[in-house]
Nucleic acid binder design. Structure first.
Length: 282
DNA sequence: GTTAATAACCCG
DNA sequence: CGGGTTATTAAC
């Protein structure tokens, strides 16, 4: 079923009325013997109930759900007194899913992505994970882990974004990774993600600090965002600094009032052209 | 226990 | 690189 083009998020919502993360955990749970036997189990039942419907039915629900999700948003105040979007598909087969068993899908709850359910029998052609080939694969378990970025790191990053556009060059990445002690890889990812959500889900509430020089005038007042800088006085979160060696080079970024024309400072790298990516999109 | 954010991954 | 999805955590 997962071979439908439905994402976990959608599926989770329609089938169990839960969030995407929840579904994901559930999937994982099947692999790990968790001593949990109740509650979750009940939820499974709900899901199965949904699965018993025909494909067409399911698609319908998906559409409906996505429609509600995508549109409507700007009906700020008073509007939409009536919600006609509220007739859920028949959910009668509650206690007895008796007659219809058209498509008893064997519950191949597996990774989805991509293929829609159309091919019944000729399912996936080979899917061999080459264990040995390629060498190297030391095929280990891959536990994806999410590295949590500290607040200070985050602050530095956002200020960096404020100064230079969104995407840094290699040099900058390296620097940042050193300053924040984060893997270089992470930095890159971070920027990618930032670009993404600054673009799409950027509605309300994201203060950009850019635009200098441009008269930016909002009629809004009450805007005072002060600055970060560690802790102010109050007592705040304690954070283990990376100190310890006695030397932490937490250099503040020296930002240029304007840089851009490196007259004398050349990067230590020989060839270079660092694209002064002073890009300002839009 | 679930939701909500968000880093990591994948596909184009 | 960008867009989207998935998997992991912190917060409720």
């Amino acid at each position: 079923m997962k071979r439908a083009k439905v994402s976990q998020a959608l599926f989770a919502k329609v089938a169990a009325n839960k969030s995407q993360g929840w579904l994901c955990e559930l999937l994982r749970w099947k692999e790990g013997p968790s001593p949990e036997n109740r509650t979750l189990w009940e939820n499974l039942t709900n899901i199965r109930r949904f699965l018993f419907l025909r494909q067409a039915e399911r698609d319908q629900v998906y559409e409906e759900e996505s429609r509600q999700q995508h549109s409507e948003r700007l009906h700020t105040a008073l509007h939409v007194p009536e919600q006609q979007v509220f007739h859920r598909p028949p959910l009668p087969p509650l206690t007895s899913p008796s007659p219809v068993h058209e498509d008893p899908q064997p519950l191949p709850l597996l990774v989805l992505q991509g293929s829609e359910d159309g091919s019944q029998s000729g399912i996936s052609p080979g899917l061999s994970a080459g264990a040995g080939s390629g060498s190297g694969s030391g095929g280990q378990k891959k536990a994806r882990s999410r590295t949590r970025i500290s607040l200070e790191a985050l602050g530095t990053l956002q200020s960096f974004i404020g100064d230079v556009g969104l995407y840094p060059d290699q040099e900058a990445i390296h620097t940042l990774s050193a300053q924040l002690d984060l893997p270089k890889h992470t930095i890159v990812k971070f920027f990618q993600n930032q670009r993404y959500n600054n673009k799409h889900h950027n509605n309300n509430q994201v203060l950009d600090e850019e635009e200098r020089g441009s008269p930016n005038e909002e009629g809004v007042r009450g805007e005072s965002v002060s600055e970060e800088s560690g802790e102010d006085g109050g007592g705040s979160v304690e954070e283990g600094r990376t100190e310890g060696g006695g030397d932490v080079e937490m250099e503040k970024e020296e930002e240029e009032g304007d840089d851009g024309k490196p007259s004398s400072t050349l990067s230590p790298y020989s060839s270079l052209d660092s694209p002064p990516s002073a890009e300002q999109q839009r």
